[in-house]
Structures are given as C-alpha cells and as structure tokens.
Design a protein around this nucleic acid. Structure first.
Lengths: 213, 213
DNA sequence: TTTGTTATTGACCGCTTGGTCAATATAGGT
DNA sequence: ACCTATATTGACCAAGCGGTCAATAACAAA
C-alpha cells in the first residue's frame, strides 16, 4: 500500500534489527523470512530481495549479534585497577552484569552455538568468538601466573582463561532460565572467593594457615 | 508392506530411540515426526498413533534423555576417597569424562535448555535437572566450608556448587564445537589447580607461602 | 516531461510439516 | 473357524515454508 523507498544500507539494518527481534522472541526456529518481514512491516519478497537467501540473513544476523553485543570494553573501568586480581574481578563482574542487561543477546548466542553443531560456517564463527573471549582473559591470567609460579606449576594461562569463561557461561546457563530461583549474588561471591584464594598476596592477615595450627 | 505387530511398550521405546538418533544427528529442528518414523522404519502415522502429538514425543524424549544419561553415579568410584577434596576431584573428572563419552546426550541437553526459553514445561524440567546437578556437589562443598570457615566467610555451599557446575558446562561449551583446538587437559589441570588452592590441607610441603618470604 | 534504474509488491510454485481418518492386516480368546 | 481388539498403513488435508517472477511504483537524471 504505502510504499517508501529507502536506501539499501538503511533497509538492511532495519531488516536485521527486525530479524533480531524475531529471533530473540521466537528463537532461531521461529526466524522465518515471513516473520522478519512482518516485524519490519515489509513484504517477505523484499527481505529476500535484500538478502538473497534466508541463509545469508541468518549469517548476517550472527555478524550483527557479535558486532552489536558490547563485549569486553576492557578499556576504562577495568584498566584503572593496579593489581591483576582486581582487574580480573572487575572483568568478571562486568561480564556478569552484561548477562543480565543483554539477556536476549546472550541467549541468541547460545542458540547459534547449538546451531553451529550442524552448520560449519556458523560453528567457525562461534569458535572464533569464544577464542576471542578467552584471549581477553589470558593476558590477565599470565600476570597471575608470573606472580606465583610455584603455586601454579603446570597450569597454563589458556587453561585459566578457559575457566574464567566457564564461570561466565555457566552462570548464564544456570541463571537465565530460572532467575528467581538461582542466587546470582551468591554465585558471584563464591567465584570471587575462589579467585581470591588463587593469588591473594600472602600476608599474616589472610594467610590460610592462620586459622589452623 | 511387511507388518509386524509389537506390544505398545516395545514400540514406544523403539520410537524414542529413533527420536534420539534423529535429534542427535539433525538437532531438535530436524526432529520431525516423519524423520523419526523413517529412522524407525515405520509409517509416520504410527508414531502419532503411539504419542498423540509431536509435543508429547518431544517431552518424552527429554524424559528419556534425563533418565538415560548416566548422571552422577556418585556411588562407587567417588565415595572411596576419604577427603572431600579428592571426592570433588573425582566428581569433576568423572563428569568431564562423561562429556566426551556421551557428547550427543550433552549436546541435546543444551538444545533443550535453549528450547526451554520459550517452552515452560521444558524449562521447568531443565531447571530441575540443573538443580539436581548442583545438589550432587553441594554436600561436598559443605564439607569444604566446614573445614575452613574463616577462609570462606560469606561463601555458601550453593554458590560453590553452582561454580562447580559451571566448570563442567563451560568446558563442554568451549570444547564440543572445537575439540581439536580446545585444550581439555589444560582446562582440567587449571580447574584442579584452582580447586586445590581452595582447601588443600596446609602442610609445609604445599603451603602457599613456602615460595615467598 | 520523458526516460531509465531500482526498490517494492502480490501472486504463484513446489515442498514439507503436523495431524486426521477410513481401510486393513494381525493377534488372541472363544 | 469366527470374532473382537488394536496395531499399522496410505491417502489426504490445511498451513506454512523458502524462493521466483512479472508488474509496478518511486525516484534521479536527461
């Protein structure tokens, strides 16, 4: 009926946003060309005109998701802390906060992860993103390892970074589908406590054996 | 063509197994009534005859998955160790091994988790399973907390159990889609190292400050 | 105004899906 | 052998899917 022409770039962004809305609401299973078109109030033929195939839309939505998600703005808030341990705390807390502020992005990421099992190009991109995620922690972990080489004999920075990523992913999985029953604060405290044991500077005050012997 | 009558229970199990094969191969998106029927070499009408609706098949497959998956046979191998920490090690290692021995079960569980976001009855069952999973660790964690209450001030057994579950889930997510690039052993060593810092019996040999001062 | 390019649409196609149903073959009790 | 139960099937249906295409409206350039 009412037709308004729009430049290609603008339309594509509009359609991608609509695709995200649909995927966030109905899951990737509900991401149909027609549903996206309805969300954007366009004809479904126009969506295919701009993206060629649904497959392209699916892949570009993943690109949009990875680009849009505010991953690891490590810069300002985190860098301030002098100690590596404090930066790790801040990093973890920041990521936990992101899980609760952008749950739809995180959830969609998990869905793409599952899709990646049977879809190689998507699997590759998801793996790369996870690797990028670990890399953001690795630097920090190397500092921790250097501080106390004897304690961490045999442990690699990669291993520790992977563990850090697990802490975030695992919290997301347990909390997202059951937010009122899962104690996110208790989780954060426990995670922080564990990390604290990792590399707390050894002084008489917090030395472990002060409570024994 | 060749028709053989089978008692209801037998047929249902046959169909459920076929459903698992299909879901493991093609994902829940590929779990169609017809695909299951083809896998079981039956007509698709027969599948609907025994399960009524696809919805029922989907739910019963989840039940089958949770029942079949060899979760937490804590009994024999683990109970043997006298120290809580060793039992925790064994538990973690056992679960890690399960991830690699039953990857299809684990992957399907993740897919049900994602589906649970828009499907309440499934979400409820998944949440319950995760809770059950945490409970298996909680008992162990309480022992650790009792051993050194000062070190873990403010930390709850629930929080620690959730962290333990995260270690397993996170490892699965990072490793499953990228097994040759992810260092599972390094992960396990790191996780074990972290836990070791948690509550290792304090002796001159492994006391942390032995490398300092 | 005319012309040419392109964004947009509705109609259409072939295919797959979940689900129903009458017809039929099978087994067990008598 | 007959009869009743039910397990099993192929045919059918409406709905929704991705994708194609000719027709058309909007816009910029001439």
């Amino acid at each position: 009926m009412v037709r308004r022409r729009a430049p290609e770039k603008e339309r594509r962004e509009q359609i991608l946003w609509a695709a995200f809305e649909v995927a966030a609401r109905d899951g990737l299973a509900g991401l149909t060309v027609r549903a996206v078109a309805a969300e954007a109030q366009l004809s479904h033929a126009l969506v295919l005109f701009h993206f060629g195939r649904k497959e392209h839309l699916l892949q570009e939505l993943l690109g949009w998701l990875l680009a849009t998600t505010s991953v690891f703005d490590v810069s300002e808030d985190v860098v301030g802390f002098p100690h590596a341990l404090d930066r790790l705390y801040a990093l973890l807390q920041q990521e936990m906060a992101r899980l609760t502020h952008e749950p739809r992005h995180v959830r969609l990421f998990f869905e793409y992860w599952a899709l990646g099992a049977r879809h190689e190009p998507i699997r590759v991109r998801i793996s790369a993103e996870l690797e990028r995620y670990r890399a953001a922690f690795r630097e920090n972990m190397e500092e921790l390892l250097l501080a106390e080489p004897a304690t961490f004999a045999g442990i690699t920075a990669d291993g520790l970074a992977a563990v850090a990523v697990s802490l975030i992913q695992g919290c997301a999985m347990q909390a997202m589908n059951d937010p009122e029953h899962f104690d996110t604060d208790g989780y954060l405290v426990a995670a922080r406590g564990i990390i604290g044991q990792l590399a707390a500077p050894v002084t008489p005050m917090n030395a472990r054996n002060s409570s024994h012997s």
